[in-house]
Design a protein around this nucleic acid. Structure first.
Length: 868
DNA sequence: GTAGGGTTAG
């Protein structure tokens, strides 16, 4: 193909970055665990002086643009100026790749050319082949009567489908021995490899392949393709790609099936879309025309990353190329769109399917229902489920599990139990996914007795817990503060011989961080990297969030070699470390258990609270630098975590310096935050608007977390007018989905800073009503809720903050008798207060930092324009 | 050689 092929359009409109550590790499690094790698060597533990001035300039604010002589001037290259907030957050949330194996879908032998005798031999092999010898007897007794390799292929495939792996291998070896023709031996080898691949026995598959190559019958496109597929199913995408290369080295030409298998492997293994497109381009260069399955597999790559726009491009490219779509195409495309958070678009696409003569099936519905559930649109999810029932589409295991998860999220346990009953009645036993969903649901509602009951039932039913079960349990117990339970689960997890992964580590790290044990969290981070598990953005976000929360004594960050260290005032950490390094064997158990033991013992876990609190948010700079080195892209949660850390810090200079330094990484995001903090609103408001536009594309909880963090930070540092502008902007964009009417202000989704700024704006608005001579409603209410959105159930920080604010203003609101989270006033009393001469002065907010054009009247007209 | 479900950060 000399001319530019149409495939050029396959470019992700947004770069997808995967921070995951595919299993093959993980295994590889396990294998090389003794060799120092970039990870472990960078995790230095020698304290070095702070690279930042310990006494930041306290006088004049810095100019808007950072000086080139910053501590990061040695950065090899700066990240692109465009922020990646949306990219990083619109995609799939899961960062766990390989726990879900793509195994067990049996290859049908319908249409196989086997003889009737092969079926008989199969039954004998299943029934009588109890051991090697007995199986050999069966095979020998059929040897003369069985046809060629077709019969043996059938036999070993079917044995594989029945999970009789060793019998399949024995049968294969038997067949190869009696077969003289190389091509036939090759056929046997490729079906054996494919069968083992389906069973997830990838090492065995590789052995079969190697033997076949060594013995001279394995060098075929089919065996190579089968091996690629086997690697793919188990998530070993790098290996799959390597096999493709070695195949070319061996002088074989990959065909359509080979390329499709490689692309499929890439999708399952989480290879970046861009890289898969390169393979696709290579395929085209080699004159191999893609087919429907190629595109379906490419769509699956997009779906994994939530690249819904790229998926749409692929879809139209299929149409352009005259390649028909099928139900797989639609379901995979829909999955990509759902994972990209575009639920309305997904629903619309699904509605268009019948006109293309492709009817939505149970997979389509479970995809969209789950998409709605993940987007928090639980009612939409349920109504789609009803639609599906109405259409008499029968439910399967996955849909039942989707429902269980949905009802669990809603706390509708009766419905969940009914689903369980229905599953039982139709003969679908609960599997590990069902139990995990139930455990998670009960756990989120704090029903720990039910959690225990479910777990016991699971064990009694011989459903083995997997890493997700343990993850779920550890997380829910940690969140509930039941650290002793979390420890017990962790012990069981170790006992089960499972290897911790990035999610499990991140949960543990988060639990430590939430309790201020940032040192322990960092040492776990160190631990996991030594284990060859790559932290991801979630891990780092937890750690960033810990700063300012903790009471660690002293923190030193070494940005140059990339290490993050905390130097503690006490020597205990140092000696602790030494002890652990000696006990290499059970080091990790001890660590986890010790840390969690600390939490369990102290319950609330403020282990080191009386130590001198120092401003440690500058450590974040080091973390950020580290993330940059590791190519882990910060996202909007990182941003929110940093701002929240700033809000916990009492030094304006430290906060402004941090934000200013961070502008070197992302000038848009941190430029806005820094500018607003400094009061340079005129300079940054346009940039802020485009940032807000980006945030608007995210789901509501992400967006509100962003606005909450930003306003909190501004409020905390006295930039109250700025905070109010941001909050009104958020209100204008419906970020909080809360009520703002003349009679009621609902603050329950807001942070204390945002809520306070909002109260001012709302009261000013009510005041204009009064001054226009209009009647106020009889009753005015301000709702703060019960801290439902707070991580701490029943936390009433917001209520207390609002109470204090109203009191300080002298506002005539009081707590409603029946609802502690509601402040009320009659309209007439409020109106009288608003008319008082001093009230306006109390309501109008001022910035602590100078704002060149600041004026009360400006502000009033501003907020009126925004609020009304 | 192709699709959907379970977990972590705010």
């Amino acid at each position: 193909m000399a001319s530019t092929p149409p495939h050029c359009s396959i470019t992700a409109t947004k770069p997808y970055q995967s921070h995951q550590y595919p299993q093959n790499q993980r295994l590889k690094s396990q294998r090389n665990a003794r060799q120092p790698n970039q990870w472990t060597t960078q995790q230095v533990s020698l304290p070095k002086p702070l690279p930042l001035p310990s006494q930041p300039p306290r006088s004049a604010p810095r100019p808007p643009l950072p000086a080139p002589t910053s501590s990061f001037s040695s950065l090899p290259s700066l990240p692109p100026p465009k922020s990646d907030l949306v990219t990083a957050f619109s995609g799939r949330r899961s960062t766990r790749f390989v726990s879900k194996m793509h195994l067990g879908r049996p290859k049908t032998t319908v249409g196989s050319r086997h003889s009737a005798l092969a079926e008989e031999a199969l039954h004998h092999a299943v029934q009588y082949g109890k051991n090697d010898l007995a199986l050999d007897d069966v095979l020998l007794s059929f040897e003369t009567r069985l046809g060629g390799s077709d019969d043996y292929t059938f036999l070993l495939r079917e044995l594989g489908n029945r999970g009789e792996c060793w019998k399949a291998i024995r049968c294969f070896e038997f067949a190869v021995r009696r077969e003289r023709r190389r091509t036939e031996q090759g056929k046997l080898a490729s079906s054996m490899i494919s069968t083992l691949g389906r069973l997830g026995k990838v090492e065995l598959a590789k052995n079969v392949f190697q033997t076949a190559v060594d013995d001279g019958y394995g060098k075929t496109v089919y065996t190579y393709s089968a091996l690629i597929s086997a690697y793919g199913r188990s998530g070993y995408c790098e290996e799959a790609i390597r096999v493709l290369e070695s195949m070319k080295d061996a002088g074989l030409k990959p065909n359509l099936v080979t390329y499709n298998a490689v692309i499929d492997a890439c999708g399952k293994g989480g290879v970046e879309f861009k890289r898969v497109v390169e393979i696709f381009n290579e395929m085209l260069r080699n004159g191999v025309q893609p087919d429907r399955i190629t595109y379906n597999s490419l769509l699956a790559v997009c779906s994994r990353g939530g690249l819904w726009e790229a998926a749409q491009n692929l879809f139209s490219e299929m149409v352009d190329r005259g390649i028909d779509q099928d139900i797989y195409t639609y379901n995979t495309l829909l999955d990509a769109i759902c994972k990209g958070g575009q639920m309305d678009l997904a629903y619309q696409m699904m509605s268009e399917m019948p006109s293309k003569n492709i009817l939505p099936n149970v997979v389509t519905y479970s995809t969209i229902i789950d998409g709605y559930a993940k987007a928090g649109r639980l009612e939409d999810a349920l109504s789609l489920f009803n639609e599906m029932k109405f259409l008499a589409i029968s439910l399967d295991r996955v849909l039942y599990n989707t429902l269980l998860s949905l009802y669990g999220k809603l706390g509708r346990f009766e419905d969940a139990l009914n689903v369980c009953k229905e599953m039982e009645s139709v003969g679908i036993a609960k599997d590990v996914v069902s139990y995990n969903a139930l455990l998670g649901g009960y756990g989120k509602q704090g029903k720990y007795d039910e959690v225990k009951r479910m777990y016991n039932e699971m064990i009694e039913e011989h459903v083995s817990p997997n890493i997700l079960t343990y993850s779920t349990l550890i997380d829910l117990y940690s969140k509930g503060g039941l650290y002793a339970e979390a420890m017990r689960v962790f012990r069981e997890f170790k006992h089960a011989g499972l290897k911790a992964d990035v999610v499990l580590y991140s949960e543990l790290i988060n639990a430590l961080c939430k309790n201020g044990l940032v040192e322990s969290a960092l040492s776990l981070l160190d631990e996991m990297t030594k284990e060859g598990i790559r932290p991801n953005v979630v891990t780092y976000n937890s750690i960033i969030d810990a700063f300012g929360r903790s009471a660690a004594t002293e923190c030193a960050v070494d940005a140059a070699p990339g290490g993050i260290m905390l130097q503690t005032g006490s020597s205990s950490t140092v000696s602790e470390r030494k002890v652990f390094e000696i006990q290499v064997g059970d080091r990790e158990d001890n660590r986890f258990l010790k840390m969690f033991g600390q939490l369990a013992a102290e319950k609330a876990g403020y282990a080191i609270k009386d130590r001198k609190v120092r401003q440690e948010i500058l450590c974040i700079l080091g973390i950020f630098q580290k993330m940059h080195e590791l190519d882990i892209k910060p996202n909007v949660v990182t941003f929110s975590a940093i701002l929240n850390a700033c809000s916990r810090c009492n030094s304006f200079d430290d906060a402004s310096m941090l934000l200013e330094e961070l502008r070197l990484f992302d000038n848009q995001v941190y430029g806005v935050a820094h500018g607003l903090l400094m009061g340079y609103r005129d300079n940054v408001w346009v940039k802020a608007q485009s940032l807000f536009d980006e945030v608007k594309q995210m789901d509501s909880s992400t967006a509100s977390a962003f606005y909450n963090a930003l306003t909190d930070m501004l409020w905390h540092f006295g930039q109250k007018q700025g905070a109010q502008l941001v909050v009104l902007e958020g209100k204008r964009r419906n970020v909080w989905e809360s009520a703002w009417s003349d009679s009621c202000l609902d603050l329950h989704l807001m942070s204390p800073g945002a809520a306070r700024a909002m109260v001012h704006a709302w009261l000013l608005n009510i005041r204009t009503i009064v001054f226009k001579g209009q009647q106020l409603p009889n009753l005015l209410s301000i709702l703060t809720g019960w801290g439902k959105h707070s991580k701490v159930v029943g936390d009433s920080t917001l209520r207390r903050a609002i109470e204090a604010l109203l009191t300080s203003m002298g506002a005539p609101f009081h707590i409603a008798k029946c609802n502690l989270g509601r402040f009320i006033s009659t309209g007439s009393v409020a109106a009288a207060w608003l008319k008082e001469s001093g009230t306006l002065e109390v309501l109008v907010l001022h910035d602590d930092r100078t704002y060149p054009k600041g004026a009360h009247l400006d502000q009033i007209s501003n907020f009126q324009a925004l609020a009304l």
